[in-house]
């Protein structure tokens, strides 16, 4: 299955990636190849197999509703490029 330039642009936008024309072409080819490889799975008969929600045979990993101390504000904001009034400052949203 070939990935069109439009598909690449769509995925790039969703991932907030700014691609050059060359990159769009290159990634289009690479993504097509990856999908083609994954397409091999289509050859298997999966009629008797239920969809896999998780690869580990685990279920109901739960914790009790008991509070534990949080980190403090200074620590929380330590990696923030910009902050104001104890909050993360982010650029214009819309």
């Amino acid at each position: 299955m070939a990935i069109s330039k439009k598909d690449v642009e769509h995925v790039a936008l969703l991932s907030r990636l700014d691609l050059t024309e060359e990159e769009k072409h290159l990634y289009g080819e690479q993504l097509s190849a990856i999908l083609a490889f994954m397409g091999k799975l289509q050859e298997l008969n999966t009629d008797e197999i239920s969809p896999t929600a998780h690869i580990l045979p685990l279920q109901n990993v739960l914790r009790k509703d008991m509070p534990r101390p949080s980190i403090d504000q200074g620590e929380a904001l330590q990696n923030a490029p910009l902050q104001e009034k104890g909050m993360f400052r982010v650029p214009r949203i819309v």
Binding site: V61, L62, R63, P67, R68, S70, I71, Q73, A76, G86
Partner: peptide, 30 residues
């Protein structure tokens, strides 16, 4: 396991988990 209490000083009911730091796993509250 951070508190859900309403209000509080900004960014004081947080931990690496709910701040989305890499390498931290979520565990469901029963």
């Amino acid at each position: 396991s951070c508190s859900t209490e309403f209000g509080g000083e900004p960014n004081t009911h947080v931990c690496p988990g709910c701040l989305g730091m890499p390498g931290v796993l979520p565990v469901l509250n029963k």
